[in-house]
C-alpha cells in the first residue's frame, strides 16, 4: 500500500457511521433520480450565504427608522417583511412582537425547532437543544441571565412557544444614542439573539 493509499483508507476509517449513511443515501437518491444534485447544492448555498439574521436586522432597522413601516410590521409582519423581499418557507405567517422598557419578549419552540427562516435563517444549535426548549417556558429570566441579559425587576417577560405555523420576530428596543443613524448603521446593532429575545440590541459603544 502506498502512502497516499494508506492516508486515503485512514481517512475513510475516520468517517462516522452517520457520515457514511448520508453518503450512501445521497448516492441512492441521485441514482434513482429522486433528487437533482444541483438542487441540493442550491438549497445549502441559500441557507449558508443568502438567508440569515442580516435579513431580520434590516427589518428591525427599518422599523426603528420609519414609523409607517413600524406600524405595518406590527399590523401584518408577513406583508411588511415581504416589502424587503423576504418571504416563504418557515415564514409564511409572521408576527412581530415589540420589546418596551417594561416588556421583554422571547421566542421558543418546545416541540421541535420552529423559527422564522426568511428573517433569521436556520436556528442555532442551542435554540433546538433540550436545555433551551425545556427551560425557556418555565424559567425565562434564568435563561436570559445565562445569555447575559438582566432585566429590570419590574419588567414583564412574555414567552412565545411556536406550536403552529405562526413565526415570531422580536423587535428589540432601539439603543439610546442612535438618533439620526442610517438604517444601514442601525442594522449593525441588531443581533440574531436580540430578534429571538435572548439578547438585546448592541449599544453604540459595542460596535467595533
Amino acid at each position: 500500500m502506498s502512502n497516499s493509499e494508506h492516508a486515503h483508507s485512514h481517512d475513510h476509517s475516520e468517517l462516522s457511521a452517520t457520515e457514511l449513511r448520508v453518503r450512501a443515501l445521497e448516492t441512492i437518491l441521485v441514482e434513482k433520480g429522486y433528487v437533482d444534485p444541483k438542487a441540493l447544492d442550491l438549497l445549502i448555498e441559500t441557507y449558508e450565504t443568502k438567508v440569515g439574521p442580516r435579513n431580520g436586522a434590516r427589518v428591525v432597522a427599518r422599523a426603528w427608522s420609519d414609523p409607517a413601516y413600524h406600524a405595518r410590521l406590527m399590523e401584518n409582519a408577513t406583508a411588511a417583511v415581504a416589502e424587503l423581499g423576504y418571504q416563504g418557507r418557515q415564514g409564511e405567517h409572521l408576527v412581530a412582537v415589540e420589546n418596551t422598557a417594561t416588556l421583554h419578549n422571547m421566542v421558543v419552540c418546545t416541540l421541535c425547532s420552529c423559527y422564522p427562516w426568511p428573517v433569521l435563517g436556520l436556528p442555532p444549535v442551542w435554540y433546538k437543544s433540550a436545555p433551551y426548549r425545556s427551560r425557556a417556558v418555565k424559567e425565562p429570566r434564568a435563561v436570559l441571565r445565562e445569555f447575559g441579559v438582566t432585566l429590570p425587576a419590574h419588567s414583564e417577560v412574555r414567552v412565545w412557544d411556536s406550536t403552529a405555523e405562526i413565526r415570531y420576530l422580536v423587535l428589540p428596543l432601539r439603543p439610546a444614542g442612535t438618533e439620526g443613524w442610517s438604517e444601514e448603521r442601525l442594522a449593525e446593532l441588531v443581533t440574531r439573539d436580540s430578534m429571538i429575545g435572548t439578547g438585546l440590541a448592541k449599544a453604540p459603544a459595542e460596535l467595533l
Binding site: 462516522s16 452517520t18 457520515e19 448520508v22 453518503r23 443515501l25 445521497e26 437518491l29 429522486y34 433528487v35 437533482d36 438542487a39 441540493l40 447544492d41 438549497l43 445549502i44 441557507y47 449558508e48 440569515g52 435563517g121 436556520l122 442555532p124 444549535v125 442551542w126 437543544s129 433540550a130 436545555p131 433551551y132 425545556s134 427551560r135 435563561v143 445565562e146 445569555f147
Partner: peptide, 28 residues
C-alpha cells in the same frame, strides 16, 4: 437538561453530512 450551550460565531452547519442531510430532507 442543564445549562444552555451557546457557541460564539456558530456556523450554519457543523459538518458536510449535516449540509447534505438538510438538503436531502428539503428536496425529498
Amino acid at each position: 437538561f442543564g445549562p444552555i450551550g451557546m457557541e460564539p460565531n456558530e456556523p450554519v452547519f457543523h459538518s458536510e453530512w449535516e449540509r447534505r442531510a438538510f438538503a436531502l430532507t428539503l428536496a425529498m
